[in-house]
């Protein structure tokens, strides 16, 4: 007589290898080249800013979180993403504050991973932008040596950055908006422009994003609909007034659009659960980003468009519930 040991569990009985930590750490892996590009273009400043933002997130998660949640990697991702959206020359204490805000007010105060309404990294950045508008819009100029700091990174906590330390430059979007100077497409692809640490190297971001989409770790409908909307709307505007409005190529590869479309908007928690909803969500982000860039007071609007559409996600989910097969009736999510 054989004795077989069985484990009796509730369904589901078949599961794939993917789990929250696995997905999260895969995302971290695809961010490695992006971080590499950031360090290549902005030197030690980029490394310092990204590290500090990540430390801020992880420390906050450890201190205020429910415990044992560091392993899922979500705090680390938020930190790296936040670091990638900050200007390289920002004082490190501000990057740390951003990390604290992102995890503390962006995630934990709502109840932790899965409960948050807004993308935590962008929420952290939004507070920094509103609290320190000068530092958040001081972009580095080209420096002589790679190892030079791109700003007063080491300003003491709570004190202002020394404005004489940084050589300030302008981002491609800023130059276009305020001086009507376009930037070479090659520079936009490769990242040889001024901007946030991780947003300039569009090609690297695109590669990481496509890998995640192929692995189905992100819903490809979101980035595709964002990029399509931006391309179509900006091309139309470009036809109307080519001197004032840049073409689609410039709009797609400048600013934070690539990083936002592939890594921010696709955050599983804060994007719609239905495929139809993803199209609406992406189109909304793209349209708002173009509106802000072309007619708003700011040169860049990807962050605000994503945060705005995040707020609409529950309504989009509700409006795009699929029909129950065979009944022809719509299920109203309650």
């Amino acid at each position: 007589m054989d004795v077989h040991r069985f484990e009796l569990t509730a369904s589901p009985h078949i599961k794939g290898p993917d789990s929250t930590p696995r997905i999260m750490w895969s995302v971290v892996a695809t961010l490695v080249p992006v971080v590499g590009a950031a360090i290549y273009w902005f030197g030690p400043s980029a490394a310092l800013v990204i590290t500090t933002a990540t430390v801020g997130c992880v420390v906050t998660e450890r201190l205020f979180g429910p415990g044992g949640t560091l392993r899922d990697g979500s705090a680390a991702i938020t930190g790296v993403l936040l670091g990638l959206t900050l200007p390289p020359g920002i004082p490190l204490w501000m990057a740390f504050v951003g990390g604290f805000i992102a995890i503390g007010l962006g995630k934990l105060v709502f109840g932790g991973l899965g409960q948050n309404v807004f993308n935590p990294a962008l929420l952290g950045r939004a507070l920094l932008q509103a609290a320190f508008p000068d530092d958040m819009t001081t972009w580095p100029a080209a420096v002589e040596h790679w190892w030079q700091l791109r700003g007063d990174n080491f300003a003491l906590p709570l004190t202002s950055a020394d404005p004489t330390v940084a050589l300030t430059g302008a981002t491609p979007l800023g130059q276009m908006k305020f001086e009507q100077i376009p930037t070479e497409a090659v520079d936009l692809f490769m990242g040889a422009t001024s901007g946030s640490t991780g947003e300039t190297a569009a090609v690297v971001i695109l590669a990481g994003g496509i890998y995640l989409a192929v692995k189905k770790y992100l819903n490809w409908r979101i980035p595709i609909s964002i990029l399509l909307t931006v391309a179509v709307l900006s091309q139309v505007a470009h036809f109307v007034d080519p001197d004032r409005y840049p073409g689609a190529l410039f709009m797609l590869f400048s600013g934070g659009l690539m990083l936002g479309a592939w890594y921010m908007a696709t955050d599983m928690v804060t994007s719609p659960t239905t495929n139809h909803g993803c199209w609406i969500f992406g189109a909304g982000i793209g349209a708002m980003a173009v509106l802000i860039r072309l007619w708003g007071g700011l040169p860049e609007g990807v962050m605000y468009s994503i945060l705005f559409m995040n707020a609409l996600v529950p309504f989009i989910n509700r409006a795009t519930q699929p029909r129950v097969f065979g009944t022809g009736e719509e299920v109203v999510a309650s």
């Binding site: 007589m1 004795v3 077989h4 509730a10």
Partner: peptide, 24 residues
Amino acid sequence: ERKKEPVRPRRWPHGVTTEVFVGE
């Protein structure tokens, strides 16, 4: 939260192990 007992997340699968005797 600090004052409460920490809740340990249960590891999947959270089923019961049983032994089944299979006769010849």
